[in-house]
Design a protein around this nucleic acid. Sequence first.
RNA 1: GCCGCCAUAGCUCAGCUGGUAGAGCACCUGAUUUGUAAUCAGGGGGUCACAGGUUCGAGUCCUGUUGGCGGCACCA
Length: 644
Amino acid sequence: MSISLKFPDGAERSYDDGVTPLAVAEGISKSLAKKVVAAKIDGAWWDLTRPLEGGGKFELVMRDSADGLEVLRHDAAHVLAQAVQELFPGTQVTFGPVTEDGFYYDFARDEPFSTDDFERIEKRMKEIVDADLPIIRKVWEKEAAIAHFKSIGEIYKAETIDEVIKPGDAITVYSHGDKWGDLCRGPHLPSTGKLGKAFKLMKLAGAYWRGDQNNQQLQRIYGTAWADEKQLEEYLKRLEEAEKRDHRKLGRQMDLFHMQEEGRGMVFWHEKGLMLWRTIEAYMRRRLDAAGYVEVRTPQVLDRVFWEKSGHWDKYRPNMFVCETVEGETLSLKPMNCPGHVQIFKFGQKSYRDLPLRMAEFGACHRYEPSGSLHGLMRVRAFTQDDAHIFCREDQIEEETTRFIKLAASIHADFGMASDKIALATRPEVRAGSDEFWDKAEAQMLNAARAAGVEPVIAEGDGAFYAPKLDFSVKDAIGREWTIGTIQLDYVLPDRLDAEYVGEDGAKHRPVMLHRAILGSLERFIGILIENVAGAFPMWLAPVQVVVATITQEADAYAQQAADEMRAAGLRVQLDLRNEKVGYKIREHSLAKTPVIAVVGRKEAEERKLALRRFGSDAQDVVGLDAAVAALVAEATPPDLKRM
RNA sequence: GCCGCCAUAGCUCAGCUGGUAGAGCACCUGAUUUGUAAUCAGGGGGUCACAGGUUCGAGUCCUGUUGGCGGCACCA
């Protein structure tokens, strides 16, 4: 018997039945066989040393490919688990998957690990690699596997098998020689030696069993693993570079904002940070005006009774900042703007002719977020949403959603920030409404997205309890994802708060609400923005767009005049008349990432010129003052105004 | 909130096994009037996060609190 393998280059060759992928690779070339870590047959993973059971599309997976790294990291996780169990007897293994840049493994152990243990664990891992233990795949009966893991005290493993595997089905166990074994889907390397030593343990964290807060907390060890030392070093360097972009660090260095103990999760915006804010807010107002929104403002603090009506008192109370007055009233700062907007909608009578009504507010909300979730500007307790609620008829939902997605995409693009991910968050387990309702609502969101040319990924079960939503997220400097834009369907609140409009038929109808935000919150958005541009803001956003720096006091009067003219033309200018050398001033303003430094010496003063130096370049551009001002004004024009 | 780590001058950090706090930058003063990424000299500044404890003696060891960081959970 022979089998036929189709290679990616189109070639087709036949082999003896039972040939291993490794043998196939060796037949092609020795050096290839060295770099191969696994195989795929018709897209399904296959271990190198496992005899093929049939022909098909055949692919060798190389150690430095994305797939290959996944195999290496999976093995690294197993080697980590073995090392930990050898060094810390009594530790139970639970679960150890691959992540974007590495892997982790969750352990159950009463004594906490410490990062001081990492050195020992890594050393043992390297010993396991040196021992080059063969990695053996075994197929077990489910019940036998459960009995086995129970007998060696691996309660979590037994539980996993019991719940994940169907009765009667077989499972695969991979073992390192006769020393250590773990339930695993595979594939794995032929032996531990193939892993290499380009791995490193990174951090230690608590993690709940099965991601559920009510379960026992396990200890998670994170690591990274790469095809070779060079890749590992590059990765570590990348992390270091990313740290320099951290908005918390840049926020302090660039004097944008600060936070302090007495106001956890609250931002003190300094003048430069607020200038960013104002610029963004002004831009957003223009875009919203143009897109047919109206802007409103609703109260910051409202009576408890109000929040009871809206349902927040019931569902959201733990997150609300509540206060009592001397006269005995109970009030709460608003955690959301929506109920307030419904009040404006309800004021007077609305007709179907008023719909869709797009009501926007730069709404300052307060939420008591769990202390452990606070994170710089990304997660705060007082934040301003670029919030809006679109009141519309059911048949307008898709059209409005499509319009919103297009607007959001255009705005994100103006900030140089395409979303990394658009997710459709679908029905959660605990939900209101019938399956019919959810089928329809999810289809509406999906259709609307597609009509806008967007294919969302599905975030199973992430929807609000009353409706699905689309989330637009972007990554920060070190790869954490944050939701910025969002659009969320809502049939419940208009009902609760009794919003209605008069339809064509003269009868009263319930409007639907679309909650939506494009930037999410100004705070988070600015945080992301800082990290995206590494503090070097484009001209239109830079808090200080131009610094006029003198070389000698003789140029002071002219520098002052040049700065005045720029300011009059609408530029944000700073004047540096200090008694310092130009080199010193250039260095300082370059480090501050100022887009343009206009240097003025005796020569420029005499000729009424400016020597312009742009961020990121050391070229000097000597231009007449009027021409320079005109050019800078053009450069500083916000993208939406540039298009007009 | 939970788990681990951390906390020294405005910032970045040094301070070995306990012996009474130091650097660079920043800041202030003076000199220098300077041509594209740091001019020189002098000076001020710290209840070593806070509260207890051990000790003849604590920045250093122990306990607690607060806050920060990294995850988990929760979320714009």
